[in-house]
Design a protein around this nucleic acid. Structure first.
Lengths: 340, 340
DNA sequence: CTGAAAGCGCTAACAT
DNA sequence: ATGTTAGCGCTTTCAG
């Protein structure tokens, strides 16, 4: 493997000159530069980024701390879309992405912060982390520049990007209300996700603004999985036949709810309107297709990368980005009709 | 950031001893080791992997060269599932994954091989690369240990993992034949994918073994996209009403074919049987659900990582792995009935 | 405009 | 069992 030393020898100059020539410094004679570049190409030189990183004390890498990179999360390819967005932005820069291997076992011995420090990443993007994950706090406390996806924490060197979940949930609820529904339930995720808290807030607020009672017992957790949502909704619907609409904090859970309804002989959307959240790929392909609050997942990743790199390069202060959502009306919702 | 030098000073030993103690060498007094480990923990020491890599001449990273990490490829989350499998295996090792930023623009200036060399990756996994990609050859020619997904090239330091595409296609074709179909068309991917060539071979072979003619004009390319497959199938079906079954080289294309059939008023599976390949998530959710040749995409990634790391660690010779496929019978296929 | 020399953090002979 | 020394490939003062 060719080094600048080899080039220096071959070109009859010092390593310093080679380094400066190759890095585009101005104080190098144009002729010598040309010769050096020539020789470098001939010898198939590739700079050793590790060595450079060692001396410059930065690695030009971004650490990706992604939970939920496993079998279960393939269905909602949320993770993948965010990743794709990150990659898209990063592709326009000279940063590379390192994906940390975080199976739960390893997490015990090595924390995220350690992983970042070991690899000397310049910054990190965290995604899919529960709010009670101890390592979340650790990363926040460490002084590694970091951007969080869907976790609204902002500090000196931590920014975040998320969508307006309160408003998103509000749109969903308002739409159901506008359809004439009055007895609306909610299947939420879990208590360790900010998005759940916020979507609940938006839901509640909107009901109350319409003078509809918010009933705590009609809000159940589906833990963001199809199966859990199905069983939770099954119990809920069985017990409360009067419910005519359900707002779900994710599309996957909405699918579970529809399954539960099917098992109970409740037809969607005729007898029950179901509305999801996310707009995952499946939503438009299933029957009935899912009315949902669409978020631009790619943009979430893209913006996260953009924000992080601006913090890194321009030494901009940390900040946050709130993306818009859009209600996509499909077939799983319908105007309220009295079936009694 | 603490270094071994700091620890050495604090513990009153030399850096060598610290290095050896921390790396579990046997020739260190148990007492000193304990003290050193203690001090290291207190000072929150994290080894600088870059520095270690520099001297050891290996980085404990695997480069992921993934084409199709973009908007279009989100539908068939093939890429993601493979990635997930790679990650799964890597999580049990001390290798981290680096995702190279390869937008097409950058490809011009930096080849895959260069990216690998710059980052000093120990090995690479390539996926979703067309066989005519010039950079494929370059990586193969470079002496970087590499595992290819779905490209059967094997050299000194290149292995591959794939599924048995000939057999897979054969299963699909045989199933259609067993259902009584005799006029079977094929929507293939494109000419720059080995899998396409192999699936075609399996298809052809099986037709001929059943004494059915293979008609070249009934094989069209859908370029692995839903839209292209739709228009190709539309033209094909419009012109050849006698076709009663279509074998598609991917599920996404099968969806396109079904759309084309719908536009022509041909009902699936009553008048036309459609069979896909891959078993992507959508396949079981769409209506009618898709009969398909299922491949274990996660295992593809998992095996690729496993193979690569065995090549790296055990200095095993390169080799290849062929995974099995499984025919999943769903609703898009039915026994042939004469509609004339 | 160019070069000599120091040093980033670590490991690995080679002493002792 | 521990320390001394050299060096991985690169950038960066500091001198010329």
């Amino acid at each position: 493997m060719t080094t600048i030393k080899d080039i220096a020898k071959a070109a009859g100059v010092s390593v310093t000159t080679v380094s400066r020539a190759l890095n585009g410094y101005s104080d190098v004679n144009e002729k010598t530069r040309k010769r050096i570049v020539e020789v470098a190409k001939e010898m198939e030189y590739s700079p050793n980024i590790l060595a450079r990183g060692l001396v410059m004390n930065k690695s030009k890498t971004i650490g990706l701390l992604v939970s939920g990179f496993s079998k279960e999360s393939i269905k909602d390819n949320f993770t993948f879309e965010v990743l794709s967005g990150i990659n898209q932005f990063a592709a326009g820069t000279d940063y590379d992405l390192v994906l940390f291997n975080t199976n739960s076992i390893k997490q015990r011995e090595k924390t995220y912060a350690q992983l970042c420090r070991e690899r000397r990443v310049d910054g990190a993007i965290m995604q899919g982390i529960k709010t009670d994950d101890p390592y979340l706090q650790e990363v926040v406390d460490s002084n590694i520049p970091c951007v969080l996806v869907d976790i609204p924490i902002q500090t000196e060197n931590v920014g975040f990007v998320t969508t307006d979940n309160v408003l998103g949930a509000s749109k969903a609820a308002q739409y159901l209300i506008d359809l004439g529904h009055e007895r609306i339930a909610m299947v939420n995720g879990h208590n360790y996700a900010y998005v759940s808290q916020e979507r609940l807030e938006g839901f509640k607020k909107t009901l109350e603004a319409a003078n509809l009672p918010y009933r705590e017992e009609w809000t159940v957790n589906g833990y963001f999985t199809e199966a859990d949502a199905e069983s939770a909704a099954y119990a809920l619907l069985k017990k409360n036949k009067e419910i005519t609409a359900i707002f779900c904090a994710s599309d996957l859970m909405a699918l579970g709810v529809i399954k539960a309804a099917a098992r109970l002989g409740i037809s969607v959307p005729e007898e029950l309107s179901v509305i999801g959240y996310d707009d995952i790929l499946l939503s438009s392909y299933v029957t009935p297709s899912l009315t949902t609050v669409s978020q631009n997942k790619q943009m979430l990743g893209y913006s996260a990368a953009e924000l992080l790199i601006s913090m890194l390069e321009d030494e901009k202060p940390s900040s946050h980005i709130i993306l818009e959502t859009e209600l996509k009306i499909r077939q799983s919702t319908a105007a309220y009709k009295d079936h009694s």
